[in-house]
Design a protein around this nucleic acid. Sequence first.
RNA 1: GGGCCCGUGGCUUAGCCAGGAUAUAGCACCGGGCUUCUAACCCGGGGGUCGUGGGUUCAACUCCCACCGGGUCCGCCA
Length: 570
Amino acid sequence: MIILFLNFIQQVTSVLNDAVRSAGFEVNDLELGPSQHADLSSRVAFRLASVAKQSPKDVADRIASEVVIPEGSYIGKVEALGPYLNISASRSFIDAIVSGIREKKESFGGNFCEGRILLEHTSANPNGPLHVGHIRNSIIGDTLGRILKRAGYNVELHYYVNDMGRQIAIVSWALEHFEFDESSKPDHAIADVYIKANAELETHPEKVAEIDRLMQLVESGDEETIERFDKAVGLAVAGIKETLGKMNVSHDEFPKESSFIRSGDVSRIVDEIKATGRTEIDNGALVVDLLDYGFEKTLVIQRSDGTSLYTTRDLAYHEWKGERADRIIDIFGADHKLISGQLKATLNAIGKKEPEFVIFEFVSLPEGSMSTRRGKFISADELFDQVKVRALEEVDKRRPEMPDDFKKQVADMVGIGAVRYDIVKVSPEKSTVFDWKEALDFEKQGGPFVQYSHARACSILRKAKDEGLWDSEAIIAPSLLVEDTEIALIKKMGMFDNVLDQCAKELKPHMLAIYGRELADAFNQFYRFVSVLNAEEEDVRASRLALVDCARIVLANTLDTLGMGAPESM
RNA sequence: GGGCCCGUGGCUUAGCCAGGAUAUAGCACCGGGCUUCUAACCCGGGGGUCGUGGGUUCAACUCCCACCGGGUCCGCCA
């Protein structure tokens, strides 16, 4: 296990704690953080100043003068600059990063955590295709899953299939009343009849009773109704899986809501909740009182006709998840905020493991919010098609001499990469408005920029190999890498484990996207300022080629963790 | 009406939870760089009352209060 920057932080913590003690102070937080002026910076002097009755600057000087750096440390020096203690990396840290990457290759930067995590994401209702709002869920969830796996967790990914809610009853009903277009992608064809059915139910409210009837039948286990529901759900899910595959998203399991009814888990958990004495009958419905958890209103867990609700089935699902994993993580849209809080409180009330939530805000259209029911949405498939067409134009413009299958392959990789990057780079609590012009704009420093840097690194190595200059196993001297841009690139690569650690701890995948851009930036600056193949000395060239290989590896690892393709040429 | 989230240069955005060094990048704009490893690149420049008003603090984009603007949720939908 090689975890470079995390080791560096540990060493700094130990050395500074000793220095603080030697200077006669006591402190429990060194207030370490990143800085533009050093590799790591401590603001501890501010905190000690009042106790010491000295200025922060004097305290910093006093601590700095007590610093003892052990032989071979990753710490180069610690110096006080005003009130700050600035720590810089040592040469041995730089060398360790280069050898660490060469040793670990694609597994570099990970495996520092353990435990089982059950991560649920997307879980869109099977009443139509995924739209541009749903894929924010998919991309955040899938990226987080990749981050957690690389960090060392055993991660299982779930798509929870709603196969018995009101909306599915409507889909099933719709298939009986409207023509299903066999020639379309099935999820789109499902949306088509679902939209018609909703319009029909709106103009003929008396038909809603037929939907209620279907829901009662499916809950009571009526074989024929169950089969009809299954057929509808199967069609939509098949289309959804195809769309997920296009953007490199896959799930390990697709558990169905109905399975928790049939297993008896739902009725058992209702009994467990009843046993807490928190329930009461309100207008015929069974409700749970969660006032002591801060919820003003009660939570309905059973309709007055005795059928269960999404919430009830979700409680059973979460209980089941809790038995299989150490941590449960759900990716939910902002509309689920209240219900997820109630879910968590109810699980707590019956002594079950509570889930952690990643909540993301909505993606809307310029004309308003999206709605499958009203047919107001832009499907993910449509977005991918458009983006690939745009990407193909770009590849064609830049590499006209290449064969068509190369162009198509690169366009697909770049198109999907651009979409994934664009979505994951924005922090989830920001609501966004979908804009075609922006979605198809490749000029910005986004996904293709990171992929391009990887292709550049590959290109250098390919050329070196052709000329017989490159041996990936060659012993090289990292100490020959002394240029500013070389050092900056190495340090940036060394941050990979720390970034993964932060993302995994805070469940914030957007920070990895930012890192990817910074890493690509560092590589491009190195590329611009330092010749590799034309280096004067042979050993310097060998070291630089090894550095390019390191950059290729870390860029590829970053792209892989972001779920983006790493093209060797583009 | 109440709860939660957001409000940072023309546009998009990091930092905010764990307050401290000239507020981060990109797009757009202006200027420079391809006989040299792919210019989907690099270098430089202009542009910001960090929504508004108070408060806490030696120090506030960051914490507290009020207000304004946008989003979202508020029992038998999911």
